[in-house]
Design a protein around this nucleic acid. Structure first.
Length: 430
RNA sequence: GGAGAGGUGGCCGAGUACGGCUGAAGGCGCUCGCCUGCUAAGCGAGUAUACGGUUUAUCCCGUAUCGCGGGUUCAAAUCCCGCCCUCUCCGCCA
């Protein structure tokens, strides 16, 4: 959420940001609401001041056993007016609040201006794209042939966009997750966390999923509980309403959780395989950072995500999202895309964002500067480190061999009982 | 799910039976100053947030906030209604 005062004092900046993001929000309407609101506040607060003063007089008169009925009579009318004004003020404030909740974050000045993913510049590339002397298969073909991925049974159990992973595919998913968590905890000093996988409306609003994107989420019937679309939601809201010590910053959390997404509006897209599921696993990183160095933390966190791919020896490229392609809450975002040879393309496997104080303002997360001064909003950052299901896709496709078997990446072997090659499913590797 | 107890400032804790003089006693903590071989103690001052007005900014002024929302009233921490959360006991359960 943007600060209303900031909007009022930086009209051109906000206007340009909305244009760059391709948003259709009406800024003029909001500004006129703001004027109405402030005028109404002046009006009603003058009356309240009068009421407070007169109430004191009344109590003094009553104690002195004097007659206060004239004052009471007048205040009765003043109170009635206050009630009306308060009601109309509340209405204006609610409309304005909804506007602010629907307004996307301001892009950082370094974010390239553009309309779509076509305009996202590549920042760096890492690795070597392997030349296969055979036509590399897609992961779902291999998963089917090797018996680890079962989309048919999942469809019977639930529906489309689900999978049953068995044997090596289940274990490799677990191995990937464990490898990633160990890396973030042991080498990056992050705090491992197991948060709730369901959160309430307030929490979803804190990070920006609500009120605008309810159709992307799964909701529990009869409960104010939503399934998390990413651990960013519970992790960032972990300190909602709190004041952190400046010395604690930056504070990093990581969590391995399932993520649930309705994938509304993606009909026909990525219908095969693991790429776009209603339920998938992700290791998420969240940082609470000092405003002075949050962009350094963004670089650091992005590097941490990249390190996962480097250790897995998977080629990737990192791109900067342009204004038109960036998520709602982000001020700046890097996407990391891993090479998937079966599809002969790059697929997003991580998204690392600095949300600055956008979420902190919604969720009310502050820190107390050491040398006194006022409490300030922290900057919040989140990044995938990494999407586990998609990492499995990348491993399967990049590590496939001509005979249809898979090599197990070196860093995963300790997590898979030393297994080096995955052959077709047998009782031995089950 | 049933029964009971409770939610007041950074923390502890008065106030709620009889509504007003309580942004809220007292204590602790913290900050600044004084004092002081050092430390501790002592003395003095200060110590919430948001919004609005004013302002270059500070200051200042106003309004709101005693879990949340609503009601009664000239006036609500205090009375009434609804909800949320925490704790204890019982039931159920991995």
């Amino acid at each position: 959420m943007l600060d209303i005062k900031f909007v009022r004092e930086n009209i051109d900046t906000v206007k340009q940001s909305l244009i760059n993001r391709g948003s259709s929000l009406d800024l003029e309407e909001m500004l006129s609401l703001d004027e109405q609101r402030r005028a109404r506040i002046v009006e009603v607060e003058a009356l309240k001041a009068e009421r407070n003063n007169t109430s004191k007089e009344i109590s003094e008169k009553k104690r002195a056993k004097e007659d206060a009925s004239a004052l009471i009579e007048r205040m009765s009318q003043v109170s009635a007016t206050i009630k009306e004004l308060d009601a109309s003020l509340a209405e204006i404030e609610e409309t304005q609040h909804q506007w602010l909740l629907a307004c996307p974050n301001l892009p950082h000045s370094s974010v390239p201006i553009g309309q779509s993913e076509e305009d996202n510049p590549e920042i760096r590339f890492w690795g070597t794209v392997k030349n296969f002397d055979f036509a590399p298969k897609e992961h779902w073909e291999l998963g089917l042939a090797l018996g680890g991925l079962d989309f048919e049974r999942a469809a019977r159990l639930t529906g489309s966009r689900f999978v049953v992973q068995t044997g090596w595919a289940a274990r490799m998913e677990r191995a990937l997750a464990q490898f990633m968590l160990d890396l973030h905890v042991d080498e990056h000093g992050m705090i491992e966390t197991i948060p709730p996988y369901m959160v309430n409306t307030k929490t979803m609003t804190g990070t920006g999923q609500l009120p605008k994107f309810a159709e992307d989420l799964f909701k529990q019937e009869n409960w104010d509980y939503w399934l998390i679309p990413t651990a960013e939601v519970p992790l960032t809201n972990l300190h909602a309403g709190e004041v952190l010590d400046e010395a604690e910053l930056p504070k990093g959390y990581c969590a391995f959780t399932p993520c649930f997404r309705s994938e509304a509006g993606s009909y026909g897209k990525d219908t095969k395989g693991l790429i776009r599921q209603h339920q998938f696993h992700k290791v998420e990183m969240v940082y609470f950072a000092h405003p002075d160095n949050s962009y350094e933390i963004l670089e650091q966190m992005t590097a941490q995500a990249e390190k996962v791919l480097k250790r897995l020896e998977l080629p990737f490229r990192t791109i900067a999202l342009c204004t038109g392609d960036m998520g709602f809450s982000a001020a700046k975002t890097y996407d990391i895309e891993v090479w998937v040879p079966g599809q002969n393309t790059y697929r997003e496997i991580s998204s690392c964002s600095n949300c600055e104080d956008f979420q902190a303002r919604r969720a009310n997360i502050k820190f107390q500067p050491k040398d006194s001064g006022k409490k300030q909003f922290v900057h919040t950052l989140n990044g995938s480190g990494l999407a586990v299901g998609r990492a499995l896709v990348a491993v399967i496709e990049n590590y496939q061999q001509a005979d249809g078997s898979l090599l197990v990446p070196k860093v995963l072997q300790p997590y898979m009982g030393g297994l080096e090659v995955i052959e077709a499913l047998t009782s031995e590797n089950l």
